[in-house]
Amino acid sequence: MNEEILLIIVLILLAYFIARSFMIEEKIRLLRENIVNMHRSEEKEKIQIRKRKRYVVFHVISNQPLIRVEEINSILSNALRSCGGELLIGECRPQVVYFSSRRSRGILRTYHDCYEKVIACLSTVRCQGDRKILIIPVKTTGTLKKARWYLFDKNLAR
């Protein structure tokens, strides 16, 4: 009689431990799934944080010849600083990636959500010290390859 009771108790304990191990396995599986989902959402956020770029092809008319990219960069940064302040420079991070002094044309890189503000600020720039300057936006593109094509386009009224 005692042996039967002991067997039943052992069986119950065995069943309890088996059930618990299953439960722990399930919990581990859920935890793993959660961790995978967390990683996926982080990747998604990373994709959203990465902004799309815009390339603005511009034409420069000046009474003194412009030769170096640094000159244009300093003119642009001064113009944006006076118009929109440091906040706009930090947000848009405009940078001249190419400038041809022969064609007086260049390519400016900025982001898709603020290229309009950058062009609006550039429209107010008409002088830089003794130098008179007029910056005309020719075309805005999404790739540098396409922007290069518009460097050779003579049409200003596009």
Binding site: I61, I119, S123, I136
Partner: peptide, 16 residues
């Protein structure tokens, strides 16, 4: 010539 406004200047000024 340096005081001329391109139509795109006006367009982007209004958009901004």
């Amino acid at each position: 010539v340096f005081e001329v406004w391109h139509p795109k200047h006006v367009y982007f000024l209004a958009k901004s």
